[in-house]
């Protein structure tokens, strides 16, 4: 069963990604933004996985849920594909978190307060 919140998140995430690609030449030259590019891509993967995962337990796009999913693992009758995408979703979040941590460290090094 598809969830509106997830679709909305994915759509906005894709808009951000398209904006990034469309303005790549300008954005890549901005030192504060460069570290945030890879985490965004991970998050787009995560958001896409969340949406795709929903296609399997319900068997189609016919029923839309207004609420967020409640993931069902194979043990509880969910499909294996659904579980894989679910895991992908969370692994991508983890990767994005790692990326964001590195980005924060890089920016902290670059913009740390220096004694005058």
């Amino acid at each position: 069963m598809l969830h509106l919140g997830e679709i909305l998140t994915l759509v906005i995430g894709l808009v951000a990604a398209i904006y990034l690609v469309a303005n790549w030449r300008q954005l890549r030259a901005i030192p504060t933004l460069r570290p945030f590019v890879l985490p965004l891509l991970f998050m787009v993967i995560s958001w896409a996985s969340a949406v795709v995962e929903d296609l399997f337990p319900a068997g189609g796009l016919t029923s839309l849920s207004v609420a967020f999913e409640e993931t069902v693992g194979p043990e509880e009758g969910g499909t294996l594909l659904s579980a894989v995408f679910n895991l992908t979703e969370h692994a991508a979040i983890l990767a994005a978190a790692v990326g964001l941590l590195l980005a924060a460290r890089s920016l902290a090094r670059q913009y740390q307060e220096r004694p005058r």
Binding site: L107, A108, Q112
Partner: peptide, 8 residues
């Protein structure tokens, strides 16, 4: 890290 480090 961001809050404490990147003050500039």
């Amino acid at each position: 890290t961001l809050l404490l480090g990147a003050r500039r």
